[in-house]
Simulated assay, not measured.
Amino acid sequence: MASLNTPAIRHLLRQTPPLRVPQRRWARVHDVRFLATHRTRERILAKYRDKLDRKAKEEGHGSVDELTQAYKDKITSLRKQAAVPGATAPLGSANSQAQTQAQNLPFHPPPPPQPVQDLASSTGNPTTTPPPPSSSPKTPAPPPGVKTLSSYLDLEKTADLPTTEIEYIWRLRHASSAQSLCAVIPSRIWDQIRLTASRHPQFILPLPREGQGAEIHFLQWTFPHPNVASVLFTHLAEYKLRGEFASPHTTVNVHLELKESKGVVLVQGQVVEGRGVGVEEAKWLLMCLQKFYGLQGEEVSRKRLLEQFSKGDGGFRVEELLEEAEKIV
């Protein structure tokens, strides 16, 4: 989630300061060497205690310690065989042994570097030069928890389909999940939404409640991958209470892999059950988002609200935000 550094957020949340978690200072410092040796030995003894007791009784020993003493020489010998050569020797003797071996080895100077012409002629193709490195960077792998479009569709087969069939398949792909959201947006509309999101990555939207006025929800845009854009919706009341630790009730991802080839972007989202927002209400928030971020030239008032919120302008009025939301219906 976003931090509380946005001036408008600070203005809205002034009455409820964020919780502060006291720093814990009772951590202990342990000797790692002790934990690695003694605890490992204790675990091994505990694991094989029954077998060792049986072995000790079979050979006439009174305890496992007596059995260990009886096999002491054999245990020492096995440890030496398993050890790295020279690891048990004193440091000085190991260094001197290595120096002696190095002095006894014959010295052969390295060969001189081969001229470029000779190297080319030796390969039988003196005119061939190595190809220049590729100038087109590869798309990086998505970070943990982020899914690209290939997680939902076979992109090779999709490339041969018309846009109408892709939209049908995309909606059918999410029809079985009651908490899912999906949509298909033309590239030209997404370009405007993306431009506005880069300028105003945080905003608030109202959610009308019949007979109860409206709830305010906080949204934040993130761009975790070149082919994925995400927007998170959170109750403003929870954001006031928990700040960056607040959990979103709805997460929406926009997949851009087909933007250039098919002229559309595919939208997929998930509504968390039990967080006070249903699927239909999440759809309303998405519709509001498109109306505010997919700005047209005549929508001056919505643009002004976005700018006032981002700048922390004291003239930002929630009442005006509610009036603009009512026009969307």
Rank of each mutant, 00 (worst) to 15 (best):
P111T: 04
G86H: 12
P131T: 04
S77K: 12
N95T: 11
Q117V: 10
W26R: 09
Y71P: 01
A102C: 00
A36V: 10
L91T: 13
L78W: 13
P126N: 05
P110C: 02
R33H: 10
A98W: 05
Y48I: 07
T37L: 11
R79Q: 13
N95H: 05
S77A: 15
R25Y: 07
A94M: 13
N95S: 07
T127C: 01
Q103E: 07
H61Y: 13
S93L: 15
T100S: 11
A120E: 09
P17H: 08
S122L: 09
S121W: 15
N104G: 02
P90H: 07
R20I: 08
W26F: 09
R54S: 06
P85E: 14
R79S: 05
T76K: 11
T16C: 06
K74H: 09
T76Y: 08
P18V: 03
H61D: 03
A27G: 14
A98T: 13
Y48G: 01
G62C: 02
V84H: 07
P113T: 01
K51R: 14
T129Q: 10
Q103K: 15
I44E: 09
K72A: 13
K51M: 10
S63E: 02
A46H: 12
T16G: 00
R43M: 14
F34V: 09
N125S: 10
G92Q: 12
T123E: 04
T76G: 06
T129V: 11
T37P: 00
Q101S: 13
Q97S: 15
L91S: 14
R54N: 04
R79W: 11
Q81H: 09
P131H: 04
P17L: 09
N104Q: 15
L105G: 00
H108W: 07
T68C: 12
T16W: 03
A36K: 05
T127I: 05
Y71E: 04
S63C: 08
K80C: 03
H38M: 06
P110W: 02
V21M: 12
H38V: 15
E66R: 03
A46C: 07
S122W: 01
V21C: 10
H38W: 08
L19Y: 05
I75G: 02
D73M: 07
Y71I: 05
D73G: 14
W26T: 10
S63V: 01
L91Y: 12
L119I: 04
K57E: 13
Q15K: 13
I75E: 00
P111E: 05
Q81R: 15
I75R: 03
P85V: 03
D73T: 05
G60L: 05
E58T: 13
T68E: 06
R79T: 01
F34K: 10
N125W: 07
P106C: 04
L105R: 15
P90M: 06
R20F: 03
G86N: 08
S121M: 06
T127L: 09
R43G: 05
R33Y: 08
G60N: 06
P130L: 12
D31V: 13
I44H: 06
P113C: 02
K74V: 14
L78Y: 12
D53E: 15
P18L: 14
Y48M: 02
Q114S: 04
T123H: 10
E66Q: 14
L105I: 02
G86A: 08
T88D: 11
A89C: 05
R39W: 15
F34H: 11
R25F: 07
P90Y: 06
S121H: 15
R33S: 12
A89V: 04
R25E: 11
V29C: 10
R39T: 02
